[in-house]
Nucleic acid binder design. Sequence first.
RNA 1: GGGCGAUUGGCUCAGUUGGUAGAGCACCGCCUUCACACGGCGGGGGUCACAGGUUCGAGUCCUGUAUCGCCCACCA
Length: 853
Amino acid sequence: MARRIPDKPTLDGLEARFGSVWEDNGVYRFDRTASRADVYAIDTPPPTVSGSLHVGHVFSYTHTDTIARYQRMQGKDVFYPMGWDDNGLATERRVQNYYGVTCDPSVPFDPSFTPVYAGNVPKDLRDRTPISRKNFVELCHTLTTEDEKVFEALWRRLGLSVDWSLIYTTIGRDAQRISQRAFLQNLSAGVAYPHEAPTLWDVDFRSAVAQAELVDKEVPGAYHAVAFHRTDGQGDVVIETTRPELLAACVALVAHPDDARFKPLFGSTVRTPLYDVEVPLLPHELADPEKGSGVAMICTFGDLTDVIWWRELQLPTRAIIGRDGCILATPPDAVAADGPYGAIVGKSSKQAQKIVVSQLQESGEMIGEARAITHPVKFYEKGDRPLEIVTSRQWFLRTVADRDALLRRATEITWHPSFMKSRYDDWVKGLNGDWCISRQRFFGVPFPVWYAVDAQGETDFDTVLLPDVDTLPIDPQSDVPVGYTEAQRGQPGGFIGDPDVMDTWATSSLTPQIAGHWGSGDGLWERMYPMDLRPQGHDIIRTWLFSTVVRANAKFGVAPWTNAAMSGWILDPDRKKMSKSQGNVVVPTDLLDDHGSDAVRYWASSARPGVDTTFDPGQMKIGRKLAVKLLNASRFALGFSDTEVDAAKISAPIDRALVKRLDTLVKEATLAFEGYDYARALERTESFFWSFCDDYLELAKGRAYGGEGYPTDATESAQATLQLVLDVLLRLFAPFIPFVTDEVWSWWRDGSVHSQAWPTATELTAGHGANDLVLSVAAETLGVIRKSKTEAKVSIKAPVEKVVATQRGERAAALRLSASDVADAGVVSTLTIVDAAEGGSETLEVTLDAATA
RNA sequence: GGGCGAUUGGCUCAGUUGGUAGAGCACCGCCUUCACACGGCGGGGGUCACAGGUUCGAGUCCUGUAUCGCCCACCA
């Protein structure tokens, strides 16, 4: 094709232009007819649309995109979808704040409801308007749809090579159907089961939470020394507790089996202070003789250790905390309703603690004052108050019993970087309960389950009514089980729907199934599963990665992917993780405005896989510089001839030496990419490119122009080399800086650079057997000449009268092969090359022209 | 308490089987150069956290220590 090389190449407008060119030409379209062997499938992390995209997203998604582009150029049909995680609590909270509403399932649906506010809710608006569940869910859909448009625009601008026709959402019908289908299969396989058990519970959200969602927070507390009375009348046993308000829930005391102080007392009983309930003193290895007084009280339930003790020592249950976090109106059987308990009924834990402490002080059963401490307490990661443990009926997925298989799955995955595997292993080895997947929330995937209601109007949880798979997704709150009518809902002899929704990870753990249309019969699934790559942050190994492996193991008995690549975090210059709460967030669109997409991608691509990286605008400036340099160098390399020059014409020794180096570069970059080390591939390519510009271009310039004294074949050799090298370099750079490379490609080639084949050795045979020294000696010699001029404070173009190069054997020979290029580039009148004596020193004497020196 | 990383010039980082320390930024000097002033050329600057060990030779391998970060456990 005829070349169209701009006089003043520019980066301006490339993002918008190529964004639509790529879309219109379907450059990144997935070919659904490809066989599995030809497919490279990526399990893209669906970003949470209730938040905003930040620099960390730009960073890690760029990493994945470089891999996708490399694989595509290697001839793979790349399955690269995008998903939006719009399911779950995060969205509910955003909707509440954005519209100033709250979901109240008792409010009837209002078909004409329109929200008063939209993102402009007054700060002092305390009372959120209660609306029906259906209205609330509609608002969730409305807002996420808007948010998703913004996200897609940013990704397109960043140049992610995703196939946008493969979009999915985690609240969409497909995701619901697949979540429910997977659940029903897990249920029939015995992997999913309902269980009434002590469960971690957030009292504000009034929902169960999973082990993976826990965070520790340091909070102030206090040790209270409390006296229990021995039933043998031999005095008291003093325990120390941070939660005296749970005294009424006490079911035993416990000490270490080897603790001499308490050994004689094991098996005896004591009476609780205030409530006078008889409880045993028992041995258990988890009790720590060093802690407090060495003896602890077991309550149902103060913490997870209590649950272990309760289970292993087979203790009774005396629950006193309700789902709202307040003390239950009815005390446990052993505790008198009309005693001290009455004073704490309906109080929060905090309020109850104050009351109990003053009661204990009054009764004289508290020893001394409370001793203030700070200690770590478990919170739901999104919660504001400490978790309680309450007994409730929840759905679980089996994990603990599958521990060995889950560990084996991890060995089937190649981890990048490899040490990240130990985080997964540690987590799996430390599992202490099955995965609780039910949540008492609204905007999520409902459990596709109804229960029969017996003749007395009581729910019969043992009679589970399930839908037909073909009818999924269903909502048990509005859909009716087969054989019943809506009128029977909640009626004696009728049915009732399971009120819970699934944990967001119960859906996210199925991203391969959702993206791959599992169970749809459209043939996609068989072409992409198990997938090739899961890219994600290392902070969600215990959640997303783990849960995805659980689902794959349960249903398919395989690892869901062959590779897992962990990206690091972005740190601000003070080495803190960048986050909204730190107030140090940089808005990605500003970044792209300021530096351009290629420059930002360059910064991201420069970071080693899995390494936390400092946010560094300076690195983006370098990326910008690289892109501009590529434009100008390309303009130069393509400017000599309007026609394609045959690579077979590459004959000059220095040209062949350059091609040989390029061959080495291609091998290194390919090897690096095969090991998922995009950063190394970029670094090597970039390093080659700069020396190509600084040395080779200068050396070959005169010859390429076809100046006097150059034979035609020498000039053609230079022109052919420039074109070949540019052709290969554009392809090597394409995964990193897709806009500028495609711009240059469009000047002289048809199609997109992103549809081209990754370079191989077979294109670079001109370099075979070339003498590397020719290029390196020439560059060194030119360097010495330049230095002489710099020291003489003259222009780089100043003429040189003569250069006498005394070099040893091979180097002298190499220099002779590039003498005219060196003389031309250095503006040297006479270049004399002398063979140094055996063992003699090598010198370079530069004599500047008398007129300039 | 257990595990995993990191520690290299002022800053941000490379350094793949052990072979005389590298880049960019910043700094200094020079050059309006016919691809590029969003430029080019050149220069100064590091006892590779510390202490031992293996080796002819260690930034690189081994042991230990310190500091920083992350994950997990503990939570009376």
